[in-house]
Amino acid sequence: MKIATTRAVIATAAILLTAGTLTACSNGSGSSGSTSSSNASKAKIGLLLPDSVTARYEAADKPFFTAKVASLCPDCTVLYANADGDASKQQQQAESMITSGVKVLVLDPFDGEAAASIVNEAKLKKIPVISYDRLIDSPDDSYYISFDNEKVGELQATALVDKLKKDNVPAGSGILMVNGSPTDNNATLFKKGAHSVIDSSGYKVLAEYDTPGWDPAQAQNWVSGQITKFGSQIKAVYAANDGTGGGAIAALKAANVNPVPPVTGQDAELAGIQRILAGDQYMTVYKAIQPEAEKAAQLAIDLANGKSPKGDTTVNTAKGAAIQSFLLQPVAVTTDNIETTVVKDKFYGADSVSQICTAAYQAACTKYGIK
């Protein structure tokens, strides 16, 4: 999950509920194998995303989701809202959608515990809720669709430790850990996966920080303070996503740390990939968002049609409830495989190469075979 692009703040739930009649139709070809029917032909589907500091939500999740709904149900309407990093705002947005008559809610919670109240309210209206990308701590989630999030942390930490060993950085050297938001269940899993690798690596964690709201500016401020405290002891930075990684790198550069030690990331944001090409960020984790968003859309239409396909697995909430789940596999990305991941998948659209390989990065693109 670059120092984040600032998105327009949407002032009220009414403005946020952008409804559009969607076009284009085909039989559902998602992995559940079901098709749309007249039951959902005019259904309203609610999509609630958590923040605007993480570029993927507006750039990828939203358009992929709405396009898939359009292909499955041409007369369905997607109501969309972004919580802008505010759990109370997300609650209001959800209540407005429930009042407007949505048939299904697809909810990526800003705060996984607080969002349980949204699920409770939806249940009273017999509206199923799909926990999207982040797990809501409620036994009444209809489905959970995300990635193997402990695996994300393992991939990040393994890449970091392997890099330190490759560079002959001595055992006992220090790592800063810039974790994700304390209100995000995924961040807990990323951290757990990362610690499972780092704690047995021979390297030590100098300090760690749970970044409120995944805010890159707060990550930058914290890393600045740690540079003052630890100085040259910092040999690497575990950053839970590209936004916090970008904040960490900005702090290191502002302190004239040269060379910048290896820094991790996640989400394969465009700015993160460009920092990798420039040598400022070591790696990111690529999560193929299109199949995640499309699976959520397929499940939403299934639920609107009264269907309940079985999940591939179950995942337990913090309180131990088993939720039918679909988990996708993440991929570690360095300069070695940008071409075969984000470029091959046209992650930034048909013009992905031109977006990555601007004049400042053209030489690096040529060096690493990105074309």
Results as ranks from 00 to 15, higher is better:
residue 8 A to G: 12
residue 9 V to F: 06
residue 19 A to N: 10
residue 24 A to D: 13
residue 25 C to D: 11
residue 28 G to P: 10
residue 29 S to L: 12
residue 30 G to E: 11
residue 30 G to M: 05
residue 32 S to G: 09
residue 38 S to M: 01
residue 39 N to L: 11
residue 41 S to F: 07
residue 43 A to D: 13
residue 49 L to D: 04
residue 55 A to D: 15
residue 59 A to I: 00
residue 60 A to G: 14
residue 62 K to N: 14
residue 63 P to F: 03
residue 70 A to R: 05
residue 70 A to S: 07
residue 74 P to L: 07
residue 76 C to F: 06
residue 87 A to R: 10
residue 87 A to M: 11
residue 89 K to I: 01
residue 110 F to S: 10
residue 110 F to L: 09
residue 111 D to L: 08
residue 120 N to V: 00
residue 123 K to F: 06
residue 123 K to S: 15
residue 129 V to E: 10
residue 130 I to T: 14
residue 136 I to D: 12
residue 137 D to V: 15
residue 138 S to W: 02
residue 139 P to S: 15
residue 140 D to L: 06
residue 144 Y to W: 10
residue 145 I to T: 05
residue 147 F to I: 05
residue 156 Q to I: 02
residue 157 A to Y: 00
residue 167 D to H: 04
residue 175 I to W: 00
residue 176 L to V: 03
residue 181 S to L: 04
residue 198 I to V: 12
residue 205 V to F: 02
residue 209 Y to F: 05
residue 212 P to N: 05
residue 212 P to T: 02
residue 231 G to L: 03
residue 235 K to W: 01
residue 239 A to T: 01
residue 240 A to T: 03
residue 242 D to G: 10
residue 244 T to A: 10
residue 247 G to T: 03
residue 249 I to S: 05
residue 249 I to C: 03
residue 266 Q to A: 09
residue 273 I to C: 08
residue 280 D to A: 06
residue 282 Y to R: 00
residue 283 M to V: 02
residue 283 M to K: 00
residue 292 E to D: 08
residue 298 Q to K: 11
residue 299 L to K: 12
residue 300 A to E: 11
residue 300 A to R: 10
residue 301 I to E: 15
residue 306 G to L: 06
residue 311 G to H: 04
residue 320 G to L: 04
residue 321 A to G: 03
residue 322 A to Y: 02
residue 324 Q to N: 15
residue 328 L to E: 13
residue 340 T to L: 07
residue 348 Y to D: 09
residue 349 G to W: 07
residue 369 G to C: 02
